[in-house]
C-alpha cells in the first residue's frame, strides 16, 4: 500500500510539473487568424497574384500575434544551435532577432526536425525556416524564399592525415551527409555520385563522429559549419580545397506569405544599411561576409 501511495505521489508531482513548467511558442493559430482577419478587414488589402487563393494576411497575422516563429534544427552551429547554457544562439538567430525588432514583434525560436521542415512550415507551426538553409530549386518550388544573405560552399571534411587530398581521391570512398540537406542533394546529383557511397545521418555531428570512428572517409557539409566546428571545438579535421558548386543561404517562408517575406527582406536591407548586419557578422565570422543588398 505504501508503495502505491508513493507511486501516486510521484505521478502527481510529475503532472503538476507538466502544468507549470510548460513554456514555448504560442500555438494559437486559429485565434490569430480571426484576429488577423479583423485587422485586415479594417485596413489594407494589399494582394497580388495570391488574390485567387485568398488575401495575403501573413504580415498582419504575425503582427497581430506579436511574435514571429523561426523554425530551425538547433544543431547547426554557428547558424543556430544550443550553447552550453542550453540557449538557442547563432548568427541566424541574432540576425532574426534584429529583424523581429524592426518588425516590432518578438522572435520565438522553435526547434524542429530538419526532415520535417516543409511540413512544419506548411502546417503553420512555424512562420519561417531560417537556419543556414541553402538555396535549391526544389526548395524554391516548395517555399517562398528570400534573397540570398550569405555565401556558402559545400566542402569535404576529412580526418587529419587522411589520404584524401582532392576530389579525385574521393572516388570509391564513403561520404556522409546530413539527411534532408542540400549537401545530400548536391552530392547525389554530382558527377561523383556514381563513384561514391553516400550515407545519410540525422545531423552533421553524427556524420563527423562516423568519420572519426572510420565508418566513412569524408563528410560533405556546409563550409561555415565545418569551419566553426574545427575552430570552436579544436577538431583535428581537414577541409579539402576543392568543393562542389558554391551555394547561398536563404530564408524560407510559406508559399503565398509574400507580405511577410517582403517585410523581412526590407528589414534586412535596412539592417545592412545601418551597420547592424556587419556588427553581427563580425561577431560570428570576424568580418561582414553577408551578401545582403
Amino acid at each position: 500500500m505504501k508503495g502505491k501511495k508513493l507511486l501516486a505521489l510521484l505521478l502527481a508531482v510529475l503532472m503538476l510539473a507538466t502544468v507549470f513548467v510548460f513554456a514555448g511558442c504560442s500555438n494559437t493559430k486559429k485565434e490569430d487568424t480571426s484576429d488577423a482577419q479583423q485587422t485586415e478587414e479594417t485596413g489594407d488589402a494589399e494582394s497580388g497574384e495570391e488574390a485567387a487563393a485568398g488575401e495575403d494576411t501573413s504580415l498582419a497575422d504575425v503582427q497581430a500575434k506579436g511574435e514571429i516563429i523561426l523554425g530551425l534544427d538547433d544543431s547547426f552551429p554557428p547558424m543556430g544551435f544550443r550553447n552550453d547554457d542550453n540557449e538557442i544562439v547563432g548568427f541566424d538567430i541574432d540576425l532574426a532577432k534584429a529583424v523581429a525588432d524592426k518588425l516590432g514583434v518578438t522572435l520565438c525560436v522553435q526547434p524542429i526536425s530538419w526532415d520535417a521542415k516543409e511540413m512544419e512550415l506548411n502546417s503553420g507551426n512555424i512562420d519561417m525556416i531560417w537556419n543556414g538553409m541553402s538555396y535549391s530549386e526544389e526548395r524554391d518550388e516548395a517555399m517562398n524564399l528570400s534573397e540570398p544573405y550569405l555565401n556558402n560552399d559545400m566542402v569535404f571534411v576529412v580526418a587529419n592525415g587522411s589520404p584524401i587530398a582532392s576530389l579525385e581521391d574521393i572516388k570509391g570512398k564513403t561520404v556522409a551527409v546530413q539527411n534532408g540537406s542540400t549537401a545530400q542533394d548536391i552530392l547525389e546529383a554530382s558527377d561523383l555520385a556514381a563513384d561514391i557511397t553516400v550515407v545519410g545521418f540525422k545531423d552533421n555531428m553524427t556524420a563527423l563522429l562516423d568519420m572519426e570512428a572510420q565508418g566513412c572517409d569524408a563528410v560533405f557539409m556546409d563550409k561555415v559549419v565545418a569551419n566553426y566546428t574545427i575552430s570552436a571545438n579544436g577538431k583535428d579535421y581537414q577541409v579539402l580545397e576543392e568543393g562542389l558548386s558554391p551555394e547561398v543561404y536563404v530564408i524560407g517562408f510559406r508559399k503565398g506569405d509574400q507580405a511577410l517575406r517582403d517585410a523581412v527582406q526590407q528589414a534586412l536591407h535596412e539592417l545592412k544599411e545601418d551597420g547592424t548586419v556587419a556588427e553581427i557578422s563580425t561577431q560570428w565570422f570576424g568580418s561582414d561576409v553577408t551578401i545582403i543588398e
Binding site: G71, D74, S75, F76, P77, F81, R82, N83, D84, N86, Q110, P111, I112, S113, A116, E120, K202, D203, N204, M205, T206, L208, L209, T229, N233, K235
Partner: peptide, 22 residues
C-alpha cells in the same frame, strides 16, 4: 524530438553537435 520536443535525447544531441563530441 521528431516534432521538436526538447526531450533528453534531443538536448543531448544538440550538445553533441555543439561540442562535436559523443
Amino acid at each position: 524530438q521528431t516534432i521538436g520536443v526538447a526531450e533528453l535525447f534531443a538536448l543531448s544531441s544538440k550538445q553533441a553537435s555543439f561540442k562535436t563530441s559523443v
